[in-house]
Amino acid sequence: MSGNVTSLEVRLAGLTLANPVMLLSGCAGFGEELAMVEGFDFSRVGAICLKGTTLHPKEGNPPPRVAETPAGMLNAIGLQNPGARHVAEKILPGILHWPTRFIANIAGSTVDEYAEVARIFDDTGVAAIEINISCPNVKEGGVAFGADPVMAARVVAAVRQATSKPLITKLSPNVTDIRVIARATIEAGTDILSAVNTYLGMAIDWSSGRPILGNVQGGLSGPAIKPAALLQVWRVYEVARHCNVPIIGQGGITCTRDAVEFFLVGAAAIGIGTALFSSPLVAGEIVTGLRHHLEERGLDGPARLTGMLKV
């Protein structure tokens, strides 16, 4: 061990976090639900991304909304949320004083809706705004914003205009070349990238011949997607490193080892989603594990791991 003092603090563009372990959108509710779990310590997580929020309340998809798959799960929640104003006025005041950072995750079916939601959160104490560009663009015929570099850039540019908060763009892996979208959103003004969101998939009940999910298709997450997600982060890093745009790596992380792997392929911070469902306290364990890992190697911070893959 060298004389370096290890600090887990990370600075992601304008966003400073006490540690680089975040809870991912849709897997941590609106923050407050986590208080139900005994031993959950908000000061142990770097940040919590709130559930995807739209301008107007959304009921979401009919159940069943989840299906377990080999080493993973599908979800089709359908962005159930009480609408941006309710979140800003009724929920945030109750949680913002807790000892972590909260990040709004925004969604919309038009460019204007994204901008409007961003304006609402710009007026609140959230630490950053994360744009979920995986939503279908209703106006232009349903193609996901995240699959088209021009549309993705338009959303990011519009949100950039609407807020001075640090901006995270969450990339979809359901594209031919994720680097093209990453580049377009960086040029449009994103400060941070988040990679990756869920992979599209479906689950069938072979005996009844019906899809399991009420929405027929859903998003695949959990350990099943980890190898694919690692490659996507590595690709995004190719583009983002030259622009000093940090990446929040995610996709199937369940333990410290997984987290370290994401740092090695280019992540500056990591996110945990699906693993919370079976281990609500896992983020704290990964923070401890990460500290040990860095200390054993005499590294002064997680940034020393970022992109250190030996190839």
């Binding site: 849709g26 639900e33 159940p63 909304r65 989840v66 929640i77 159930q80």
Partner: peptide
């Protein structure tokens, strides 16, 4: 209903419940 978390963070496990106003329902 099929669940993921069981403690309220994922919104998987919904059922339509009548609104207090008597009009309509919400999950």
């Amino acid at each position: 209903e099929r669940m993921a978390c069981g403690f309220g963070v994922c919104a998987a496990c919904v059922v339509p419940v009548r609104q207090e106003s008597g009009v309509g329902w919400s999950y």
